[in-house]
Amino acid sequence: MRIILANPRGFCAGVNMAIECLERALDFFGPPVYVYHEIVHNKYVVDRFKGRGTVFVESLDEVPEGSPLLYSAHGVSPQIREQARGRRLVAVDATCPLVTKVHLEAIKYAREGYTIFLIGHEGHDEVIGTMGEAPEQMVLVETAEDVEKLDIGNPEKLAYLTQTTLSVDDANLVIAALRRRFPQIANPPKDDICYATQNRQEGVRELASRSDLVLVLGSQNSSNSRRLAEIALSLGVPSHLIDGVSEIRAEWFEGVGTVLITAGASAPEDVVQECVDYLVRNHGATMEEAYVREENVHFPLPKSLRELLPAGSR
Rank of each mutant, 00 (worst) to 15 (best):
A18N: 06
F28H: 14
F29Q: 04
P31T: 12
V33I: 02
H37Y: 15
H37F: 12
V40L: 04
F49G: 00
L60M: 13
P64Y: 02
G66R: 03
P68F: 09
L70V: 10
R88F: 11
V90C: 08
D93R: 03
V99D: 00
V99A: 03
T100K: 13
H103K: 08
E105S: 11
K108T: 10
Y109M: 08
T115D: 04
I116R: 12
I116E: 02
H121P: 03
G129E: 00
E142N: 03
E145S: 13
K149Q: 15
L150D: 12
L150K: 06
L158P: 03
A159N: 04
Y160I: 13
L161C: 09
Q163M: 12
T164I: 11
V168K: 07
D169K: 13
D170W: 00
D170L: 05
V174S: 01
I175R: 12
I193F: 02
L217N: 07
S219N: 05
S222T: 07
S223Q: 09
A229L: 02
S239W: 02
G244I: 07
E247F: 13
T258F: 10
N282V: 09
H283A: 09
G284W: 06
M287W: 06
E294Y: 12
L301W: 00
R306I: 06
G312P: 10
S313V: 12
